[in-house]
Design a protein around this nucleic acid. Structure first.
Lengths: 335, 335
DNA sequence: ACAGCTAATGATATCGATATCAAGACATCG
DNA sequence: CGATGTCTTGATATCGATATCATTAGCTGT
């Protein structure tokens, strides 16, 4: 009872409902009802108890409530994060996705528990009411791992043949196709794809790109780059130049890569887009202000985040949920 | 007992320790110890129970454990998010800060609970072991509000005279001063500050900027812009032009603003940096690839996030913690 | 005046895990 | 051989909130 408070003086209030009940001269269940605005309790005692709670700085013990109610009003978001390199988590774009999720979920009164795949922290995930997975992992390993928890789950990524779960993602194949058609319209003959196709989503872009081009008798080159940085884009073009590979069109799977590539092309004394067309991906805000204005495939991360959250809420509510592909669009600018 | 499982068939495993105990023919406390790798239990029974748990897909009830242990191994991160505009939370940079926090905390086995100030979700914050506040809010209201919870707390933002809590933030005043000195060296006479000084951090930049310039007999102009976008930067310069205000140097408090401003200045037929110098803030990756290469004040969001997390862990461990100011640097490029 | 009803409150059990203290089995030692 | 000690396991209480069922007080209707 009050001994508890004496033993562990706690910052301000280690008050429990039992303590409040004693103070108010009622039973703890009445306190519980009063604080929950239950109509079962007289308005005047309700008011009295609520005032008492405020004055004494009473704090609900959320763990206890969650235990009793068997729910946490919390959704876990698991981001991909390689053990060695911590780059992925810090990339701005997955974080934007997270922003959309957080906005939607908090609006619905849910909290977002942010974790990675590694470590002991993953244990906390089990407390969540649902799981949102950002990135499927190599060969769906991440999906399978968390599947065993038996929680409602929604995944961001590429759509597979037979997904056990609702998957939300952009239409990456279409993204590749749009760029291919763009290059075809311009009459380009030696297109190059720059990026890392071991990510399922990027692989989709690549295959949409390649399929469309080969359908027109053109065989694009794949230039594999793991990093999505300016430097990597510059390096990619240098590599083409030193190998004396002919190229007149570049499809980079991020805007930063594209911008780096453009700078490198210009340094070689060639003109963009006259000598070489370049298209990026994501259409980040400054793509429009880049000189020359960067063409890019736009995918709406924030809408994706909202959608993921909405589907999760539906799943928690017991409603059926289906996978969904978000359209992308090519924003053709100068390059 | 097993009735429980029958009543609520639960996805896969609503197994409790009591159920496992029955299966293994031991008591539940033994199960608890076995799963915790306690040396109090025979290696062979430990192994037996762990295998059993795996096979039956046993899942620890985190709420129950948290209740008993009076800790959650969770840190709440509260981001500023205005009721009307939800822009702030979705900006990539605060999210990068979050990335740094998450990386550090998950490495230490803690989870990150992401919430906003609004709504019922804020209740869940009470379950956390500590609080990280991103942004102090207008006149410290956010700080005061969460202060009452009596949890360990660290705040990101501007440093006040008498902070009750540890505050971590960039040296915004120095940021302003560095830009002012840069302009002074170039002999600029009509500098303009573009941004929204009602954010405490931006107010600091402004005052560092103004103080330094007035110390040299130059009175800068404040051009208030609430949005941090390209369009807003363009609009700001248009506004200067139509009002026929003379200006030969712009200090924009975000890189996007700066880039927009540069484009607008160029459209007016004036040259950057010859006719007008421009400095941005944050030094985003593509600042270097912008044409002309953008000068910018660099602040290390990710390091800030790590630092916040480290201080939080120290606080939770009961160690004293002090406020800290992170240095910023001016990256002078073409503009 | 008394059965029958509603309104307000309370007693108790429960959610699932763990700390504390107790107890049984077995070995060692004087 | 009995006493003491170690090793392993168990019974019980506890964390704080809430669901369920019971209870009391006050009221109405005939």
């Amino acid at each position: 009872m009050s001994r508890t408070r004496k033993d562990r003086p706690g910052p301000t209030g280690s008050l429990t409902m039992a303590d409040l009940a004693e103070l108010a001269g009622v039973s703890k269940i009445t306190v519980s009802r009063a604080l929950a605005d239950s109509p079962l309790v007289t308005p005047e005692t309700r008011e009295r108890i609520q005032t008492l709670a405020r004055d004494h700085g009473y704090k609900l013990n959320v763990s206890a409530r969650n235990l009793r109610l068997r729910r946490s009003h919390t959704v876990a978001v698991i981001v991909e994060m390689k053990p060695s390199s911590d780059r992925t988590m810090l990339d701005p774009y997955p974080l934007t996705l997270l922003g959309g999720i957080a906005q939607e979920l908090t609006a619905a009164g849910y909290s977002v528990l942010l974790t990675t795949r590694q470590g002991a922290a993953a244990a906390a995930v089990q407390a969540a009411d649902g799981l949102i997975l950002l990135g499927q992992g190599v060969r769906q390993d991440a999906v399978r791992r968390f599947d065993k928890l038996g929680l409602p789950m929604v995944v961001w990524g590429a759509h597979g043949e037979e997904d056990a779960h609702a998957v939300v993602g952009s239409d990456n194949r279409m993204g590749g196709r749009l760029v291919a058609e763009h290059f075809l319209r311009q009459g380009r003959r030696h297109p190059v794809f720059v990026g890392n196709p071991s990510h399922p989503e990027i692989f989709e872009r690549l295959s949409g790109f390649v399929d469309t081009l080969t359908g027109h008798g053109i065989k694009p080159l794949l230039l594999r780059r793991d990093e999505f940085t300016l430097a990597s884009g510059i390096d990619a073009v240098h590599s083409l130049a030193t190998r004396r590979v002919p190229f007149d069109a570049l499809f980079a799977c991020s805007d930063l890569l594209a911008m780096g590539a453009i700078r490198a092309v210009q340094e070689l004394g060639r003109k963009v887009p006259d000598d070489c067309s370049v298209v990026g991906y994501d259409d980040m805000p400054m793509a429009a202000a880049f000189q020359p204005a960067l063409s890019s495939v736009r995918q709406d991360w924030q809408a994706g985040g909202s959608l993921l959250a909405q589907k999760m809420l539906a799943l928690i509510a017991g409603e059926p949920v289906e996978s969904q592909v978000l359209p992308v669009s090519l924003v053709a600018r100068a390059t």
